[in-house]
């Protein structure tokens, strides 16, 4: 367990495999991945193109089911025999925040509404959702753009609004796929600083998929994926 992290793991992967297709066209995207991520740490997920990074993030994010293996998310068991597919949506809603390469904001909602919409999905009252959304935007230093539509935001501002949205459901697991790929190095640094702040303030576990060498030094630990396998030396941390 790394120095910055503490307590039981928020993400625990046990022997996760995922293959697409069958026979001739079978692709083994993930093979026997076992790993753990602890509260308060930021883990980098690196590997060449096609090595299974996005697939692994999708499995952790309850977006796609693995072909084999199971995991624990914030003390809840997922993908084992008793697992119900319908609960994936609830898990995404309650436990996970997503940040994408492009901000993926809903173009017809302003910044505040983009964040508040997620809260309303969790049955927070509209008035309270707005207030809390504005707080989050302030926390990410984009409070002044609260009424702007996504089309009017700069790339860096949009990405910060997107991070605010990822935090809207107060998740302790945050998954980011290439969050800095579209930003210059200064803005990429700002985004990583913000994620660091979230990891510390919220005791959150953060997994960041990246190719971006400028942020390699920002991770507490790094997972290397190669042909769907986790590099044994780097995975570490499973007790």
């Amino acid at each position: 367990m790394p120095a910055s992290a503490e307590g039981p793991a928020l993400i625990e992967l046990r022997n996760i495999s995922k293959h697409y297709g069958e026979g001739q066209t079978r692709v083994d995207a993930l093979v026997g991945v076992t790993a753990a991520v602890y509260p308060g740490e930021i883990v980098g997920l690196l590997g060449p193109s096609g090595s299974g990074k996005t697939t692994l993030l999708n499995v952790i994010g309850c977006v796609i089911e693995p072909s084999e293996g199971w995991m624990m998310l914030d003390r809840e068991r997922v993908y084992d025999a008793q697992w119900l597919r319908a609960d994936l949506r609830r898990l995404r809603l309650e436990k996970i925040g997503f940040v994408f390469q492009t901000p993926n904001l809903l173009p017809f909602l302003n910044s505040t509404e983009n964040v508040a919409a997620v809260m309303e999905l969790m049955s927070v009252r509209p008035r309270e959702a707005r207030a809390r959304a504005l707080q989050l935007l302030n926390y990410l230093d984009v409070g002044h753009r609260g009424l702007s539509m996504p089309g009017q935001l700069s790339g860096g501002e949009a990405q910060r609004v997107a991070i605010a949205r990822a935090l809207a459901n107060a998740p302790r697991i945050i998954l980011a796929d290439e969050p800095t790929a579209a930003l210059d190095s200064q803005r990429a640094g700002v985004v990583m600083d913000l994620l660091r702040r979230v990891a510390i303030d919220r005791r959150a576990a953060i997994v960041v998929v990246t190719h971006d060498e400028k942020i390699f030094d920002r991770f507490d630990r790094v997972f290397h994926l190669r042909d769907g396998r986790l590099d044994a030396t780097a995975a570490g941390g499973v007790k």
């Binding site: 995404r92 809603l93 809903l106 017809f108």
Partner: peptide, 18 residues
């Protein structure tokens, strides 16, 4: 025009009903 938004909504946990 908003398939991407629909996918995003589903990803963050919106139900088909929504």
């Amino acid at each position: 025009d908003k398939l991407r938004s629909i996918a995003t909504l589903k990803l963050v946990g919106a139900s088909d009903r929504t």
